[in-house]
Design a protein around this nucleic acid. Structure first.
Lengths: 335, 335
DNA sequence: TTGTAAGCGTTATCAG
DNA sequence: CTGATAACGCTTACAA
């Protein structure tokens, strides 16, 4: 089953009776080629089914016209049913499409995967690298950046690397949520915090702490990892430790969803006995019982913002170190 | 902000005092190099931070060690909160990682995107192409296949192209679901079918028709596109047309979820008045009210199966035209 | 406006 | 076991 030999520039040139250089010009849209010759070349390309060999091209241009989007492998597991994962991809993809560049998705969960990412990106197989939802203090963004490879992160890098990033206004969003609870008379507000090795988890907890402190209220905390199961567990812990709580802020809608169910099982009515606010505004949020009040942000826009920054960098422009996306509170029935 | 010039084989060779060829051998793990020289080369590589240029390598080897996974752009929208999208990616990624190959994700929703996929894949930038959830009669898989590029599809190609594919036993799964309903005394079983331009939508409807026909029951059909909104609309239509229905098979859990809610709003109790069965067993299925009985299949395994087939093809082996994954019924409370 | 020719960084084929 | 040297397919000065 031998693969048919694909035609090269050389073949097209012979067929059109011109030089390789001329074919190259036509293929790359140079305007300095006589119209008649352009037509001849195009016909030859058509007839032979010529397609440029991208490896050869990038070898000489030193560009690949593709960028990598790196995600921790867990992203596909942890966020299995919210839109974070597909949302970022879609945003990145939209912006890249407009720039006629290619997306290379890399999952870097395992140490081996991590190494492959490093090899691949330092191997100049992409023009730049986008990092999504980092765990812990991943050194890779900083390493690549120092190697001169354009890098943009989703969320502030926890290792303090000087890498441009795009993030959501986590603190602002949470503050608004907690104030909403307070305005409605809640005084015993607990939180189900996210994982403390992720910047989103850390900042949403910070926001909660600041908001309750500001109002002179106690901080009642339990921890999850953004998943449903962890939300249910945390809710049970909170009920055991603070049976008199009258509101909960959960750092993700998934955790809020499970907590809602846990509350019902414990005989608490929402929002009469306990109010609940989530974060993310995933699609399911409108379908929970009762529909979930939550902090919305535009995840697709996060992907787009990151990509725009990166493209600017690959073009040699300077970009702001930080870009923060707004949030807003979507009030439904749970609070 | 000039990018530091990366060291080449040449530089490493000079530093180690050997030829380029020898460095290449060491880098690629050839055993025919004297131990002392190997060490010298490795030290030079280390000191210089040498990383092979992948474009140059693939130019001569004619391989790229990467494969493309093509998805319709809607995949990230339509399936926004089930696991189909991340699941396939995860399966593909696992299998590729084991083979030390790279995943290139391509969204091909727009015609422009379609073209880019064609250009990229025919441009020999990947060793093979995986197609996920096709809409309509996409000619691309057939085109690439005829060009000698290894291709594997998720689901039978609707245009009849002779391309190897991996699919779920849709008909078998649905049949089992409908029989379960019948066994439990249901006789007026409607269906919320999926989109009829996707093979999963078509086959699940076929399964339903066969099963009710076999039992001498009427076929009551409404159509959706696998999304929640479409499920709610279809459920309303069914209730209007057949107020006496006592069971529903929905072709996706998302549609089943919305239908559950619509039934409740219409005052029907589930499963007392109406039984409901979905398809997919997404994570949310265990959290609906009541928890959803559904047809489960292993989506990660779909991605793995596709990838294994493709890798076999790129290695020049022959593969079966068709690979069918099993389903099983997960009985919860809704039926 | 077009052609010639020099690389781009590897691997592979030969000699030695 | 090692080193020249010729590709691989394309872009791009530089000439004509």
């Amino acid at each position: 089953m031998t693969t048919a030999q694909r035609p090269t520039l050389e073949a097209v040139a012979r067929r059109a009776g011109v030089s390789r250089a001329t074919v190259s010009r036509v293929v790359n849209g140079s305007t300095t080629v006589a119209e008649s010759i352009q037509q001849a070349v195009r016909r030859a390309v058509e007839e032979l089914g010529y397609v440029p060999n991208l490896a050869a091209r990038s070898l000489v241009t030193q560009r690949t016209d593709s960028v990598a989007l790196v995600m921790p492998e867990e992203a596909t597991r942890v966020f299995s049913d919210d839109q974070v994962f597909p949302g970022i991809i879609r945003g990145v993809s939209q912006e890249l499409e407009a720039a006629d560049k290619q997306l290379v998705l890399m999952l870097a969960g395992s140490p081996a995967g991590h190494q492959r990412v490093e090899r691949y990106t330092t191997g100049r197989h992409v023009d730049g690298v986008l990092f999504a939802s980092l765990h812990g203090e991943d050194p890779l963004p900083g390493v690549l950046s120092r190697l001169g490879i354009p890098v943009v992160c989703a969320g502030r890098p926890l290792d303090g690397a000087q890498v441009p990033y795009v993030d959501v206004d986590n603190v602002g969003g949470v503050t608004r949520a907690v104030r909403h609870l307070i305005t409605n008379g809640r005084r015993r507000i607990a939180t189900i915090a996210g994982p403390q090795d992720m910047v989103a988890g850390i900042e949403r907890l910070t926001g909660y702490r600041e908001a309750v402190a500001e109002a002179g209220l106690p901080a009642w905390e339990a921890y999850g990892d953004f998943t449903r199961e962890s939300g249910a567990t945390a809710m049970r812990d909170l009920l055991a430790a603070h049976p008199d709580l009258d509101a909960v802020f959960a750092a993700s809608d998934l955790m809020a969803h499970a907590a809602l169910r846990t509350l019902r099982e414990a005989g608490r009515r929402v929002p009469t006995d306990v109010a609940m606010i989530g974060f993310d505004d995933i699609e399911t949020a409108a379908y929970t019982d009762p529909p979930l009040t939550t902090v919305r942000w535009d995840i697709v826009e996060l992907g787009r913002g990151m990509t725009r920054q990166l493209l600017r960098m690959t073009a040699g422009e300077d970009v702001e170190q930080e870009l923060i996306l707004p949030t807003n509170l979507v009030v439904r029935d749970s609070a």
